Simulated assay, not measured.
Amino acid sequence: MAELNEDYVAPRTELEELIACVWREVLCRDRIGVHDDFFQLGGESLQVVKVVNQIQLLTDLELDLRAFFEAPTVAGLGKHVIEQFAALEEAQGAS
């Protein structure tokens, strides 16, 4: 099984902690750092679907699977979720 990033950085925000928690469940890991790569930790494509579905349920956002593959870290996915929230708020403000 692949090892964690040597420069472990714990989740820094509630969103990063939520994402890391989902990853821990799916990957059966005790600890996930914000810079750990999902695929280097042994994650597979079918597990990506589980992660994305769970995060969608918890955030009420539609996440693009492509975003996960482009940034397969907690920090990268967290940034994408924040951008989705901002875009949604902007769209609702323009209505």
Rank of each mutant, 00 (worst) to 15 (best):
Gly33His: 05
Val81Pro: 01
Glu44His: 15
Glu17Met: 11
Gln84Leu: 15
Gly76Gln: 02
Asp60Ile: 03
Gln84Tyr: 09
Arg12Pro: 03
Leu27Pro: 04
His35Phe: 13
Phe68Ala: 00
Val26Pro: 02
Val9Leu: 13
Arg12Asp: 12
Arg24Trp: 07
Glu83Phe: 07
Ala20Tyr: 03
Asn53Phe: 11
Cys28Thr: 12
Glu17Asn: 13
Glu83Thr: 10
Leu88Asn: 13
Glu62Asp: 15
Ile32Gly: 01
His80Trp: 05
Ile82Gly: 02
Trp23Asp: 01
Leu46Ala: 12
His35Pro: 03
Leu15Pro: 04
Asp60Pro: 04
Leu27His: 04
Val81Cys: 09
Lys50Met: 14
Gly76Leu: 01
Phe85Ser: 09
Leu63Asp: 04
Trp23Lys: 03
Ala86Pro: 02
Cys28Tyr: 08
Val51Gln: 00
Asn53Gln: 14
Arg31Lys: 14
Glu16Ile: 03
Ala71Glu: 12
Gln84His: 10
Leu46Ser: 13
Phe68Arg: 00
Arg24Phe: 09
Ala75Gly: 04
Leu18Met: 15
Leu61Val: 11
Ala67Leu: 08
Gly43Asn: 06
Asn53Pro: 02
Leu65Thr: 12
Ala20Ser: 07
Gln56Val: 07
Ile82Ser: 12
Ala20Pro: 02
Gly33Glu: 05
Gly43Leu: 07
Ala86Met: 12
Phe85Tyr: 15
Ala75Cys: 07
Glu44Ser: 13
Val51Thr: 01
Asp36Cys: 01
Lys50Ala: 14
Arg31Ile: 07
Val51Arg: 00
Gly42Val: 05
Thr73Cys: 04
Lys79Ser: 10
Ala86Gly: 06
Gly42Tyr: 07
Val26Tyr: 05
Leu58Met: 15
Leu27Thr: 06
Phe38Thr: 00
Gly43Ala: 09
Leu41Gln: 06
Phe38Met: 02
Asn53Thr: 14
Pro72Ser: 08
Gln47Asp: 08
Leu77Ser: 01
Asp60Tyr: 11
Arg29Gly: 07
Ala86Tyr: 10
Ile55Gln: 02
Leu15Ser: 05
Ala71Phe: 11
Ala87Cys: 11
Val34Asp: 03
Asp64Met: 10
Asp36Gly: 01
Ala67Asn: 08
Leu65Phe: 14
Ser45Asp: 08
Val51Ile: 06
Cys28Asp: 14
Arg12Lys: 15
Leu27Ser: 04
Leu57Phe: 11
Glu25Leu: 09
Arg66Leu: 14
Ile19Asn: 00
His80Gly: 00
Gln56Glu: 15
Val22Lys: 01
Val49Gly: 08
Ile55Ala: 03
Glu14Arg: 13
Leu61Asp: 09
Val52Leu: 04
Ser45Thr: 11
Val48Met: 05
Leu41Val: 07
Glu70Val: 06
Arg24Thr: 08
Gln84Thr: 14
Leu58Ala: 13
Asp64His: 09
Gln84Phe: 03
Gln54Ala: 15
Ser45Cys: 10
Asp64Trp: 05
Gln47His: 08
Arg31Thr: 11
